[in-house]
């Protein structure tokens, strides 16, 4: 029985490592995952309601960022966005959402990505609920894979993770 189990393991090893070499979805054999201690888990605001997208902690946000599959959306205005945002984020200022054709505006800001793309919405931190409101709007307009990182840019920076600043910040 053990000999057969060993043969099956070797066959699986050959297939898994071999197929990964030529797969379009290949991943490095040795992963590099940072462990961040988030203490108390995700920050959930008292204004959260049932049916809201899930809230995620800093360690999950960082992991999603390093995997590179999720889109990060900054819900603050452009000045705050330029002066320190999570690298690679898209800016959709909630306070300036157009009253008409809001869905088309959001879709175009999101580059018309598929509605089931993993999306993580954030703003400054605990005092800011723009991320919650924007995520609710996006959920209403059909985005199905949303999460809210309520710790926001401040918690990101507190964990010594890099924020991206643009030249426009100086203007």
């Amino acid at each position: 029985m053990l000999k057969q189990a060993f043969i099956l393991l070797i066959v699986s090893l050959i297939f898994s490592l071999g197929v990964n070499l030529v797969s379009p979805n290949k991943i490095p054999y040795i992963g590099s995952y940072r462990e961040l201690s988030s203490g108390d888990g995700p920050i959930v605001p008292p204004t959260a309601e049932e049916g809201d997208p899930p809230f995620i902690a800093i360690d999950v946000a960082e992991m999603e960022h390093s995997m590179g599959k999720a889109m990060f959306v900054d819900a603050r205005d452009d000045i705050e966005f330029y002066c320190g945002t999570i690298p690679g984020s898209v800016n959709i200022p909630f306070d300036y959402l157009p009253e008409e054709n809001t869905d088309q505006y959001i879709d175009s800001m999101m580059n018309n990505v598929s509605k089931d793309t993993p999306i993580i919405v954030f703003c400054s931190g605990e005092e800011c609920d723009l991320s919650l409101h924007l995520a609710r709007n996006m959920q209403y307009y059909g985005y199905t894979n949303l999460s809210i990182f309520f710790g926001g840019a401040r918690e990101w920076e507190n964990f010594n993770l890099e924020l991206q600043r643009s030249p426009e910040c100086e203007e």
Binding site: S12, I27, G31
Partner: peptide
């Protein structure tokens, strides 16, 4: 962390085979 990808690659093939 360093073993996560290896497990992610080998385990599904072990299930399939």
């Amino acid at each position: 962390g360093s073993l996560i990808n290896l497990v992610a690659l080998i385990l599904p093939w072990l299930e399939l085979i």
